[in-house]
Design a protein around this nucleic acid. Sequence first.
DNA 1: TCATTTCTGTAGTGATCGCTAATGAAATGA
DNA 2: TCATTTCATTAGCGATCACTACAGAAATGA
Lengths: 198, 198
Amino acid sequence: MATTTAKRGRPRSFDREAALEQALRLFWERGYEATSVADLTTAMGIRPPSLYAAFGDKGALFGEVVDRYRESHGAYATRALAEEPTARAGVARMLREAAAMATDPDHPWGCLLISSTVNCTSPEVTGAVRELRNANVRALESLIRADVAAGHEPAGTDPAALAQFTAAVVQGMSQRARDGATRAELERVAADAMRIWP
Amino acid sequence: MATTTAKRGRPRSFDREAALEQALRLFWERGYEATSVADLTTAMGIRPPSLYAAFGDKGALFGEVVDRYRESHGAYATRALAEEPTARAGVARMLREAAAMATDPDHPWGCLLISSTVNCTSPEVTGAVRELRNANVRALESLIRADVAAGHEPAGTDPAALAQFTAAVVQGMSQRARDGATRAELERVAADAMRIWP
DNA sequence: TCATTTCTGTAGTGATCGCTAATGAAATGA
DNA sequence: TCATTTCATTAGCGATCACTACAGAAATGA
């Protein structure tokens, strides 16, 4: 594994996790393609050979950044859907927290999974992150469908349509945050979006 | 003006409008930054000096592309809001047509004004197009406000919130289209979004 | 102590970026 | 005809792209 601690030879002189966090911030703010390896090494405080030895290449580093993002800043969505008693309550909480996350002044605005691979020339990178987004839509649809089957939602509920609508709103909120929309404005968008539930 | 016909000297040997349309397609599909001048000259069928003589530089060419887009593929939104009798009817039509436009197989998916400058390193280009988006939100808010004042919408209507919500949905639909959402799926999103109107 | 292993810093690689100098070709007006 | 004007072509500018060969430095086990 890339994260195992070396037992022999000269030890790494930088904090791998701290360097990864710097890379995450940079990719979040500028996107995959617009972030150069020179930008990364400067922000991470290391030289190119150290980056390549520790992370492979730019694409593999971005892959680790995506994983780290999903387990940290992006984990609120999975948590909201898993912890709330119904899909409806989960989506409401997810949208509410998305408004707060996307406008948090402590980190770049918007969602890394949504913005960082827009206009990316690498089909592999673009496709991998797109697949994560589309998988999230399918997972949400399944969650709603299960809730309808269990009688937690009205029989007229359309799981696919609700999932698509929710995805569009979340992704639109991310873009609006990048354009300067405030947390209050996006919380209002989130609350309005919930009114379409049957 | 850049569009006036030359009266003396060797005439231009290519169709400026046709070349501009090719540039529009490329910028629409790949975004501003990921489209290189070499890509552009190949698609436009000209050599770099001809591009620079006719359009200035890459940024100016993109500016003309944006203008052309707003007057062609992007004009449906302004038309919808201007031609329908109420803001509500205008927004409903705009969202419906946005679903069709964003998934039209005859051109790149999504909206050029929304996607082409995401992750762009030029503050001028990014800022100019962001301002167009934000101006559209403000214009929609004013339209709704005027409609409320004229009694065409219920007194409880919140123009700013409705404009933000509509902007988020439109921008989310563009992103979903780029991820492969179908016209029918986005038309359903558009129809659902209208249900939040009072 | 010393060979082995792994990391770090210097200094690049070839490719591509946006852009342009220089020259010749094709039109005009006089 | 012929000077003038404008465009097209070739070729290449310096800067930056992702990435790496190489050598020295710092740890290990024997």
